[in-house]
Nucleic acid binder design. Structure first.
Lengths: 193, 193
DNA sequence: AAAATTCATTAACATATGATAAGATATTAA
DNA sequence: TTAATATCTTATCATATGTTAATGAATTTT
């Protein structure tokens, strides 16, 4: 079970405990493969799993009342995916998560994981660190969203994920930036000069 | 020391431990009063304290390279304030926090608090809950920002904080909504019909 | 109380962005 | 390979939002 071992190493790293026995996870986790365009989470459904991406890439998006999609994140090998918000609310999910390529994910049963967090300080610490890291990322994104233009955010995105443009349709990038594909085309056209 | 007792009760509530002895806090905390327009945190300075608002109200904002301000949150009696992001980075702060009215705050020394979190599971649990709650709020705000128009977000804001419009200048509300005061005026004018 | 400042609204104008549509490529399916 | 579909770009037009400026009201300072 190679992918699960990757997750274990990731968590040992996160906790700074290289030798930690993480065999409890064997009970919580399973591996699932996704074809391109398959959904890890469908909006309207109750979210049960978070996932550790062993291979592939996903996009996470909101859908508004008119059916328009708004990408809020891309995630890749080595990232967690899943809707933190929907997992913790346990109400019909607001988020959809779709495979951008064929992918493999370690599914983590959220309910069982929460029991660990309740009963074991190690897992509380992990959970705290995960929430903390997510929060720090959110603040960075908030800052960018408030103080930068779409063109500036596009440049940042390109620098941070140079592979992204080969991987996903540019209307997905536009959606992530909060603009239309037409507007992104214009930004690109301007950049060439 | 009435304000500190309020904070203690708030934390006991958060932890679900009504009887918990929280006298460790006596060493970490102090009370400070702020005049209207005084700063709790000035961008460019290193953030040292988080604060529990015992009385009054604050706004938290980013400043961009042109000196423009972007309100990212308002907070009131019973809320925590302080820049989570800047407290944890310990680099020159990106956020400024300004008193909207004369206020009183329980200052919490962040370094000493972090030592508690490291050494004591109770405080780890508190810290986890605080991060978790902040994160859940962030997700709600993200959803609104991505899927709603400025006019819709304005309506939500009014419903959630009916007192806000008496308390803060309307250009502050506009900044929070990500629009100009002129644009907010137009939204208001439209709503009258 | 008077003067000065700040703030909210409105109007006129400029600009940026979205909508629609058409054409060109590229990708996928038959 | 050919046909069908999806995607990207560009152009045109409509619209929404920002900018600047003027006015009056409200607030603060002297």
């Amino acid at each position: 079970m190679e992918a699960l071992d990757e997750l274990k190493n990731f968590l040992r790293e996160l906790a700074g405990m290289p030798g930690k026995d993480l065999s409890v996870l064997d009970d919580l986790c399973s591996i699932k493969r996704y074809k391109k365009k398959e959904l890890f989470l469908r909006s309207g459904h109750i979210s049960i799993y978070s996932g550790y991406i062993a291979e592939g890439a996903f996009r996470e998006y909101y859908t508004d009342k008119n059916g328009r999609e708004f990408n809020k994140a891309f995630c890749f090998k080595g990232d967690f995916t899943g809707s933190y918000y929907d997992l913790h609310r346990q109400e019909p999910s607001l988020v959809t998560i779709e495979a951008l390529t064929d992918s493999a994910v370690v599914l983590i049963n959220h309910k069982k994981y929460q029991e660990l967090v309740q009963s074991d300080t190690f897992w509380l610490r992990i959970s705290h660190t995960v929430a903390h890291n997510l929060l720090m990322k959110k603040f960075e994104k908030e800052l960018q969203l408030l103080t930068l233009t779409a063109a500036e955010r596009y440049e940042l995105l390109q620098k941070r994920y140079p592979e992204l443009e080969q991987l996903v349709a540019s209307y997905h990038i536009a959606s992530y930036l909060g603009i239309t594909p037409i507007s992104l085309s214009r930004i690109r056209a301007l950049k060439k000069n």
